[in-house]
Amino acid sequence: MPMSEYYRSLRRKIGTQLIFNPGVAAIVRDARGDILFQRPSADSDVWSLPAGSIEPGETPAEAVVREVWEETGLRVTPERLSGVFGGKDFRYTYPDGNQVEYVILMFECAAVGGHLEAIDGESAELRYFPSSAPPPLALPYPRDIFLQTESERARFQLPEAFEDGS
């Protein structure tokens, strides 16, 4: 679904200025372990995970189930929290000028039903990519978040800034 009534009402009051936006994102894998990504428009070179805003009164788990359904036509069950992301690198300005800084709870989800098709018109293309080769993304998720096993993730090192405790 495009912008909800809650965010539309907020934008009428504050215009396009920067807001914090709590959101969710889903890692949904196929039988091979490839990850589902969505391209929001046919003229865009960047992709996204199925993702969206948490609405007032909604839990993060409820939001990820709703967002995956709306954007992909798949029914999912959240299995675990994979990470929490935010900060200036997660700022985004939409074509209409609305500025957001996302705080994203990312869930690993299992597909339990439905069939792959965009329900809400927010996905121009849905495609699975190998976890080792995700497409160019709109937000800078760390590459190791897409790896499926602990042994795969162990091959990646923390950035130097974290190695000395800073």
Rank of each mutant, 00 (worst) to 15 (best):
G57S: 06
Q157C: 08
D45P: 00
F90N: 05
L116T: 10
S132C: 03
L81T: 10
E58M: 13
F37K: 04
E108P: 01
W69E: 02
G15C: 02
S82Y: 00
D30W: 03
P135E: 09
E108S: 11
L158T: 07
E122I: 00
T149I: 08
E108M: 04
P134L: 04
E71F: 07
N98C: 07
I54T: 09
S44R: 15
S44H: 09
L10E: 05
L10R: 12
G97L: 08
Y128L: 10
F129W: 12
P95F: 05
A51N: 14
R11A: 01
P2N: 11
L147T: 02
A161E: 11
V100E: 12
G113R: 12
E160C: 02
L10K: 09
P135W: 09
L49C: 10
E160K: 14
I27M: 14
P60S: 12
T16F: 00
E5S: 05
L10S: 00
E160Q: 13
I119M: 13
R66G: 06
P136E: 11
G33W: 02
D34H: 15
P142K: 15
R32T: 03
T149G: 10
P130R: 10
T16D: 12
P40E: 10
A42I: 09
Q99M: 15
G83H: 06
Q157H: 15
I35E: 04
D34P: 09
E152V: 08
S166V: 08
Y141C: 07
V103P: 00
G33Q: 01
Q17G: 04
S9L: 07
P159V: 06
E55D: 15
Y92R: 13
E67L: 13
G113E: 07
G121D: 11
A51T: 11
R32S: 12
I119T: 05
G57V: 01
L116I: 11
Y128A: 06
T72A: 12
G86T: 02
K88Q: 10
G73M: 06
P142S: 13
A118I: 00
P140M: 13
G52W: 04
R32L: 09
R29D: 11
E160S: 14
R75K: 13
S44C: 08
F37S: 03
G52K: 04
S9Q: 14
L147C: 13
D96K: 10
G97S: 10
E79V: 15
F107W: 14
F156C: 04
G121P: 11
G113W: 11
A111Y: 03
Y141V: 06
P159G: 08
F162R: 13
M1Q: 09
P60G: 06
R39Y: 01
I145Q: 12
D43C: 01
A31N: 08
R29E: 12
M106W: 01
Y94T: 09
G15Q: 03
G83E: 05
G87R: 11
S166M: 11
G165M: 09
P159T: 06
E122W: 05
F85V: 02
E55W: 07
F90G: 04
P159N: 08
Y141Q: 07
A26N: 04
G33N: 02
I119A: 02
L158C: 03
F37W: 10
A42N: 07
A51R: 10
V65L: 03
E152K: 04
V24T: 09
